[in-house]
Amino acid sequence: MDVSAILAAHEAKKQAVTVEKEIPLELDTGLLAVTDLNPIDCESYNENLEDYLTSTARDGVQALIAALFSLPTSSSADGPLAQLPPPATQLPRAKPLPKPKPLTKWEKFARAKGIQKKRKDKKVWDEEKQEWVNKWGWKGANKDKEVQWLTEVPANADVDFNPSQAARAERKEKMAKNERKHLQNLARAQAAQGTPNESGKVPQSQRKQLIDYTLATTRVSTASMGKFDRTLEGEKKLKGVKRKFDAAEVSAEKEKSSNLTILSKLDREPAAKKSKNSSGDSVLNVRKAVRAVSGGRGSATLARKAGGKGNKGKR
């Protein structure tokens, strides 16, 4: 049996799908492009332009198709999907890179504490209606208390206490608080960024101004408005900073009241001391006693010890 004919046919088939070039073709499968860096053949170009163009294009496309068909594929409804590598040619972007969003106060806290974001369902199951209802918004469950036909009123409530109105006020207060926090977050983000210009950076002059402002604030924060502070080299003198004194002559009424406030302060026991002696006028200093008995280990240890002894006996 002569198989040479079959082999030759197979070889011909292989030849038909391979492309031989002096300089190998540059393939960029990520962008579906192929670049043929071989110099243009002058003779065949002048002889028959269209044929020459078609044949060069065919060679290039054949190589590109070969590369595309040998990529790993996944199947889809419309046929195999070739998984493309990232492009080799870098093209300029049409828009700058997106800026990261400034974090809210909660997000910052959650990140520091490692709290993961939990997505909450917007719907809750209503047992009475036997259907899913919105937690808030249109026909929201958070308005149940405002519309229910009977409400329990606390015993110490006013005569004109309106429970539905109170519930509504509470809900509205929550909304207002949320909005307030939102605005504060916006302001914080703005302050952290300064007011950035087009390139997205706070200009240096503005940052400098901000530092100067902070420094000036600290310099006038002493009782003497920074008069006796040590000055650094090259520090400028602040302008327009003056101490303000009370007027020498004030009405007798005012003088009396101010003096009385001073006197009342003198008579008062300091807050820190007050809390220590909260046990009243007992002779025994409980804290000291506990410390002495427990050997400085605290009342909890003491209690455990006493309890433990009792338990042991029972067993």
């Binding site: 419309d78 999907l81 493309l84």
Partner: peptide, 14 residues
């Protein structure tokens, strides 16, 4: 003609 970055292409669609 071809600037968009894609991660896969349908081969019969070429």
């Amino acid at each position: 003609f071809n600037g968009e970055e894609i991660d896969s292409i349908c081969l019969p669609g070429i």
